[in-house]
Design a protein around this nucleic acid. Structure first.
Lengths: 239, 239
DNA sequence: GATTTGCATTTTGCATGCAATATGGCCGCG
DNA sequence: CGCGGCCATATTGCATGCAAAATGCAAATC
């Protein structure tokens, strides 16, 4: 047995670290959609040489977070309504599958963790702490996904989710929508507790559909603002 | 309009070409599951330097076709029942979604293409030409997928499909299963012609489930054979 | 005899240099 | 004044060199 025990130190490769770091920067919106990814500049900022950086860029391109323009460098994939819509369309069945499988495979211990996250989320909701709310929210969905016990599903879902998470950083949740999301999350927890896979699937798909509508509307609003002010930035009007 | 018309010459990057070539070699089984991907050897065979090769390996790893062992090189992802099962589990809803969307979005012209492929496939079936049959089969599924008009779906489906296609090269289709597959394909064409999305979804999901069973059984048989002969090769018994 | 330690070889990881390509501004020309 | 070609610069694409890590083998130790 190779015993990948708890005490093993994990020195990670530089290219892996760079990929992770860049992915975070893009997903969190710190490098905005459409921004150029100049190799020299990034090398200086991340204090690495071009080789691991270039390897990271190739991976991010494969994940759909960056686009490689031959001989002209890379850019963060611009956000467009069409692209986000397409991602949500695929995300739907994956989220549904995730819920259905979780109901058949989740361990009591895992459920307890998700329940704890749920009530922590309620706390942040009552305090109107959006940042912490989002964190718990993501953690819950991630937990359900993990409980589905399918690493391929987890990876696929995670990659697609990263692509839309970028867009959420300017989707300003209305109070009305927030209230509704909380109700939906109550139903999610209830269905999961009963291990009612069919029901959890339905709720999750509706929940995602609502999230989609909010995000799409936010992007539309942003696009209109860009049009009016001419302060075009990082947004692809179509395609 | 940037007119990515038919006349544009596409000089592709070396790393892109290498990625494509290696991916094909792995998917077609010419580099078998579990095989080591030695950089120096591959460089000589493909006549490229290590830089583009390494970039390709990173991408293939992100796609799940290769595994990177830190400081110990890369191997073609071994085939295991668990992994294939997981991939099929995710592929199901994607295939279903693909059919449903295709029914709402397919153009008559695209349908005609798929119908032509269908009858060409019947021809190869009658001649018992497995190779050509598989080619048409893949082309039909790819066509439906394309007709769904969602590039994100197409990419996700394509990546997962590549992972299981490797396993099909030793799944020896029985005549019985082949006959049944042909019947199912008739139903697929019929549902698509009627633009009956719900029905096409159901048929495609059943079709995929049957395919899964064949592939899993083939892998099990292969694993048993390996166990008996001790001629262990490229297969992970579990995990 | 089994296990471990040390060394030589192989292989990966990363940095850098050079050639090829794109970009932007300038000048000449119409 | 507008337009197209040309050169300087910046940037990417690829090849290669060097250091670090892993592997295999042999010798030494218990």
């Amino acid at each position: 047995m190779t015993a990948s025990g708890a005490l093993a130190i994990n020195r990670t490769n530089l290219h892996t670290a760079v990929t992770t770091r860049l992915r975070d920067l893009i997903v969190e919106g710190l490098i905005p959609p459409g921004a150029r990814l100049n190799e020299r500049v990034l090398c200086e900022q991340l204090q690495v040489s071009r080789t691991p950086l270039r390897e990271a860029l190739k991976v991010l391109a494969a994940e759909g977070l960056a686009e490689l323009l031959p001989n002209r460098g890379a850019v963060v994939t611009p956000i467009s309504i069409a692209e986000i819509d397409h991602v949500f369309e695929v995300l739907g069945p994956l989220e549904g599958l995730s819920g259905e499988l979780a109901c058949t495979r989740i361990a009591n211990e895992q459920f307890a963790e998700i329940r704890a996250l749920h009530f922590e989320m309620l706390l942040h909701y009552n305090r109107a702490d959006r940042g912490e709310y989002f964190r718990c929210n993501q953690a819950i969905h991630h937990g359900i996904n993990r409980a589905a016990g399918n690493p391929v599903l987890q990876a696929s879902y995670g990659a697609l989710n990263a692509r839309v998470r970028r867009a959420r950083y300017f989707a300003n949740l209305t109070q009305e929508r927030w209230d509704k999301a909380i109700v939906e999350h109550g139903q999610i927890l209830e269905a999961l507790e009963r291990r009612d896979g069919a029901r959890l699937r339905r709720i999750l798909e509706i929940h995602l559909k609502n999230k989609r509508d909010v995000v799409i509307m936010a992007i539309e609003a942003r696009l209109r603002a860009n049009d009016n002010e001419g302060a075009a930035l990082a947004f692809a009007p179509c395609d």
